[in-house]
Computed example of a mutant assay.
Amino acid sequence: MNRYTFLKNLGFRGAALMAVLTSCVHEDDTYVPALTLNAQGQTITGPNGTTVTSPTTTSVSTPTSSTATTSDILGIKNPLLTITLATTTGLKNVGGYVILSGIVVAHVTAGTYAAVTQTCSHEPKKKVIFNSTEFYCTDHGARFNLDGTGKNSLAGSGIKSYKVLTDGVTLVVYS
């Protein structure tokens, strides 16, 4: 669900709706949960009934994380981050998180990850962390859902969330 639909469902109409949106409706304002791919190359069903086939051969980079520019990892061209899960201590346990290149990546539930920008929407400070079940700004107390939408008045229009894909060995964060 995008911001426009959400606000309309809350009862905002006409000028009030436009004032709340303040020209910030984008087509990519939807949350796409992470897909987990089977390492054996088998087809699995992801969120919303989508079918995904894991690549049979995957080249995984040696560093724990990198900002790739032209690589094709897990079928994603130009990922923002590539993380090797086995060597990234912060993501080994549910509730853990890491901050890399201004992106907060959290281990939400077993095999499920979420990623958002580290920059808070209340004031542009890089103070967002993962706090058990939500993203949280340590400077202002702004709280954000896993998809980056705001949970309290300090969160405003929310923060940028990223798509996440994993095969259980490598985690890729992309736009």
Rank of each mutant, 00 (worst) to 15 (best):
N152P: 10
F6M: 06
C137S: 13
Y4E: 03
M1N: 15
V172H: 03
I44E: 14
V108A: 06
T53F: 08
T51Y: 09
S23R: 12
A19Q: 07
V52I: 13
T112H: 15
T45F: 07
C137D: 10
S132R: 09
N2A: 10
Y4T: 04
T138V: 14
G141N: 05
T170M: 14
A110E: 14
F144M: 01
L21T: 13
V94G: 05
V104F: 00
V104K: 05
K163S: 13
K127A: 05
N2M: 13
N78L: 08
T30H: 09
T82A: 07
T5Y: 08
G95C: 04
T82I: 13
P47W: 06
T87G: 14
G148S: 02
T64P: 04
N78A: 13
L35E: 14
Y31K: 08
Y113H: 02
L85D: 04
V108C: 05
Q42N: 04
F144D: 00
L10Q: 13
G96T: 06
E134H: 09
D28V: 07
V98T: 07
V105A: 02
G95N: 15
V94H: 05
G46H: 14
G95K: 07
R13D: 12
N131T: 07
S161I: 12
V104D: 02
N9V: 10
V169W: 12
T36F: 15
C24L: 11
L91S: 01
P55L: 06
G14C: 04
T87M: 03
K126I: 03
H107Q: 11
